[in-house]
Design a protein around this nucleic acid. Sequence first.
DNA 1: CTAGATTTCTTAGAGGCATTAAGGAAGCAT
DNA 2: ATGCTTCCTTAATGCCTCTAAGAAATCTAG
Lengths: 239, 239
Amino acid sequence: MSAHTGGRRARLRQATLDEIHAAARKLLVEQGSAAVTVNAVARQVGMSGPALYHYYAGHDELVGAVTADFFRELAAAMEQACDARADEPVGDRLVAACRAMRAWATTHPAEFGWIFASPVAAPNRRPESMRHQAALRFEQILLDLTVELWRTRPFPVPDLDSLPASLRGQVVAYSAAIDGQLPPGAAHVFLSCWIKLYGLLCMEVLNQLDFAFTDVEPVFEECLRDLGAALGIEAGSGA
Amino acid sequence: MSAHTGGRRARLRQATLDEIHAAARKLLVEQGSAAVTVNAVARQVGMSGPALYHYYAGHDELVGAVTADFFRELAAAMEQACDARADEPVGDRLVAACRAMRAWATTHPAEFGWIFASPVAAPNRRPESMRHQAALRFEQILLDLTVELWRTRPFPVPDLDSLPASLRGQVVAYSAAIDGQLPPGAAHVFLSCWIKLYGLLCMEVLNQLDFAFTDVEPVFEECLRDLGAALGIEAGSGA
DNA sequence: CTAGATTTCTTAGAGGCATTAAGGAAGCAT
DNA sequence: ATGCTTCCTTAATGCCTCTAAGAAATCTAG
């Protein structure tokens, strides 16, 4: 085990890891998912194939680690957009975070593709994987903002009794899973918004909208207006 | 060239093609996308590797052909759901087609995964490919139903002037692309519905909703109610 | 300071995949 | 019957993942 994390050994190792991630990303962006092979990445870094197995147990783990990077970078972009508006109403910050999400997704389509459709879905589902941790932090961002919005400016929620029982049960469970930060009704609104937003981005990046749209930006803005309406956000609606 | 399509030669060839498709699908369903290799499929069929190149030019073309099958099967399921209700109002048939779409998607998750995220996206984009043809037919189904609905029971459409110019332009272009079967405002409503419906299915099949939902069915039903509202459908609202 | 343990990297190699090349056997048409 | 086409085979290339065995560099502890 490396004694102190700041040791020379550890620093070199981290530098190599960074190089590996950069190489993998370069291959992904320039030549597509299939080009990210253990051998190709190693070659790019200047080592010979098997050397890479001293850093990752195999192809899947490498992909998972790089995907975790993408999650972190996306999350950072959203948080930065938020923090840059720390003095604005939370609704505006929420919208800014959503825009930052799409901005990152559209400027990094290959990376975003790995985020929701990693070439290796199954193995990276272990909750302890870096990928999963990073994904959680990402998902947390909009939830936190929605919670803050709910606390400062509660938005209208549907009558729980109006929901079919099977949906109500799951919404109640989710509300409990987030420690009741949002009551079931508000959780339902949040989930609906998340589905619309993320679903639209998925379709855009998977090129499922090309048949009708060359520029999805106004569609996304329309989606944001819907979300704003559902969440009771009007521009500049501060406390 | 085979003289008459019904010749013995052609029949044998077709039987082999069917066997190949079945083998590829079996591998996909039982062992995942990565298991569908030229060699594995050939082995399953009982030929040795390169023999398969007499049927498809390569791995990509094979995947494209099988994916086209999936499109056709999905389209057939939707059309069957529709035709079984030939005497009901078009709105009900539209909803039935949507339910059939999700039913097929959830009972065939691996196959549906290839429909919107084929492992080989780029090459199969050629408009003459079987995959593209089948995709068009699939997309046509809900459009046709919406057109029929629009003609018999026009639904409310937004004021075109209320849309931002960049969105209006694209909606107008799409309206023209479908030969004006729907005017731009109605086309916009159709596209919004399509995005919500298909986006939700994408997220479900890509397991992006697992963090909150174990059963997406009521969420889908809720989405259908939204669509019904947007399209002015109430159950049993016949001519 | 030095000797063992650890880390990092190398080459060799097994086994699989995509694909091409070359050729044999079988069916079909004249 | 003979030649053309179709279907399939084996051989071979070059890529991939991953394991094994070992050399060199580095750290740690006596």
